[in-house]
Design a protein around this nucleic acid. Sequence first.
DNA 1: ATGCTCGCTCAACAGCTGTAGAGTCAAATT
DNA 2: AATTTGACTCTACAGCTGTTGAGCGAGCAT
Lengths: 191, 191
Amino acid sequence: MSEPTSRAARRAASAQRILEAAQAEFGEHGLEGTTVRAVAQRAGVDPSLVIQHYGTKSDLFAIAVRLPGESTGDDVTGHLFDVLDVRLSEPPPETRALVRSMLTAPEATGAMRDFLNERVANLARASDRDDAELRAALTVSSILGLTVARHFLKLDALSGEIPAEQVETVLRPWLTAALGDEAAEDVGPEV
Amino acid sequence: MSEPTSRAARRAASAQRILEAAQAEFGEHGLEGTTVRAVAQRAGVDPSLVIQHYGTKSDLFAIAVRLPGESTGDDVTGHLFDVLDVRLSEPPPETRALVRSMLTAPEATGAMRDFLNERVANLARASDRDDAELRAALTVSSILGLTVARHFLKLDALSGEIPAEQVETVLRPWLTAALGDEAAEDVGPEV
DNA sequence: ATGCTCGCTCAACAGCTGTAGAGTCAAATT
DNA sequence: AATTTGACTCTACAGCTGTTGAGCGAGCAT
């Protein structure tokens, strides 16, 4: 069932398996901690094939985290940061890969900064307070911290056992408060 | 002025220079991104001397971030997380080194988790709400996110230009709110 | 059936890594 | 003054890294 015999199809399937393996490895060990050989092995493939497909390890990383990719609306862009529609579920592989490397890989740091800056700007635009930008930044950075603490550091108090609903009922009004109360209703589910 | 001629003194001075170089390098590039040779060069010393002094690269890291070190009261323990007395100044070298590696180096991840778990527990103890632990965790993770966003990602809205006081006046009441209002007065500057 | 195409593996490389051991030379001890 | 100590550097090595180029063998066109 899993053997498309067309040549092009098999090649595409290989590329896909490699990409998924890369996302998983990057998500677990970061850019520097991930080895081309490890990606290849996980994909059941020769290391050099990885290079032949994606050029360079850092090219592969850029693709794996969809680095310069414009926002489709619910890609990386849409997940971690549906700001007031905070998702507490496990982040998708690209997001994991990006967040995992954001403190050590310059390209990931830059991408994360750009992305968060944009989110802050969007969020600030919904309010007309003069400290709107600062408040938006606090909101966004809180969500970042929550994501890191829950899904990467796995703090006890935020771990899997805790139902997402409980977290949300506490979190949501608190985050809305961060924006200044009068902005609370202006911000719909689509931020 | 900077040449103590005693043998033991010179050795101690070397060790200190190496340690500081290590903290700086770890703080900039993380555990994996830092090379023993780079530390040595920064300290103006031969690479093997680094090993002779501190054993292994990962031993050096543990010492540089004061890994198992009991809390002196305002070490790593005291800085990043004076929870309601949030410091917005540049974190000290050990803290930078620890935070920088927390997503990629397992030992740093574990240390960070332990440390944050303890902080959450302490903070939760100050309240008697039944969701106290959850609220404490949200507070702590927010501060983590703020630190990362400001000092590591350098978000525009949180960058150096913004006076710390302004951030604090917005941040502090918001964080106290996270703990549930009635806990607000219970928590003094010493958490 | 034959020749070409091309997705893939094999083998190899140069560079960098952490780390060990021998050697060196000034300070301490006698 | 002669000897010992020990802080330091030099040299080296084995392992792993990303990446390349040659070769193989199965799918394709003829």
